[in-house]
Simulated assay, not measured.
Amino acid sequence: MEQVSKSVPVIIERLKTHYPVVNTQLDHTSPFELLIATILSAQCTDNQVNKATKVLFARYPDPKSLSGASLDDIKKIIFSTGFYNNKAKNIKACANKIQTEFNGKVPRDIRSLTRLPGVGRKTANVVRSVCFNIQAIVVDTHVLRVSRRLGLTHATDPVKVEFELMDVLPKFVWNDIGLQFIYLGRRICHARKPACDRCFLNDLCPFAAP
């Protein structure tokens, strides 16, 4: 891990150079909208989620209205996001819990967020980092893959990866680096055919080593 520690500042600097401004690609105007959109984003593209939430939030813009919506109507709206039966149940139950237990406001702390139906640490950290500016590392499939290939972690469980990354990365970069890894994973460090020849981190990456 000593070699990894030495490469961390360089990795951070290069990511900042190539991706100086990073933002979530999920459309939202409130913590509630981002929370619901992130739940829907499981196994679905951001673009498809944005199409569904545009309709969903126009009809049900807050926890009170969504918690009172019929499951059938929710399912019809979010059908294109996949796994719509479970997702519909989760977002309705999530909205209900926010309305009844948190006075209609999305909580900020990780413990309360992960008590909401359909919300794990990844979804909670998306909301905490984007909406509340709390430093948190979001571990999705891209972050897991990129961080493992770079040797920053050897874990496969997303929660373990999150905590190991928190140990090796300075706190002030947590919010940005998760999104930067996502950008890198989507554009260069693909799962099946990573473009190592044009990756700006290939000289630091054990996976890319000849």
Rank of each mutant, 00 (worst) to 15 (best):
Met1Asp: 14
Ser7Trp: 12
Val8Phe: 09
Pro9Ile: 09
Val10Ser: 13
Ile11Asn: 04
His18Trp: 09
Val22Trp: 06
Asn23Glu: 04
Gln25Leu: 01
Leu26Cys: 01
His28Ser: 06
Glu33Tyr: 06
Gln43Phe: 04
Asp46Met: 02
Asn50Phe: 00
Thr53Trp: 02
Lys64Ser: 11
Lys64Pro: 02
Lys64His: 14
Ser65Met: 08
Ser65Ile: 05
Ala69Tyr: 15
Ala69Phe: 13
Leu71Pro: 00
Asp72Cys: 06
Lys76Cys: 02
Lys76Arg: 14
Ile77His: 12
Ile78Tyr: 14
Phe83His: 14
Lys87Glu: 01
Lys87Ala: 05
Lys92Gly: 01
Ala93Ile: 01
Ala93Gly: 01
Cys94Val: 09
Lys97Ala: 07
Ile98Trp: 15
Lys105Ser: 09
Lys105Thr: 07
Arg111Glu: 12
Ser112Cys: 08
Gly118Ser: 09
Val119Pro: 05
Lys122Gly: 02
Lys122Tyr: 01
Arg128Asp: 07
Arg128Gly: 09
Val130Ser: 11
Asp140Thr: 05
Val146Glu: 07
Asp167Leu: 05
Asp167Ser: 10
Val168Ala: 13
Pro170Thr: 08
Val173Pro: 05
Val173Glu: 08
Val173Leu: 07
Asn175Asp: 10
Gly178Ser: 10
Gly185Met: 12
Arg187Val: 03
Ile188Ser: 07
His190Leu: 05
Ala191Pro: 00
Ala195Arg: 13
Cys196His: 15
Asn202Arg: 15
Cys205Trp: 11
Pro206Leu: 08
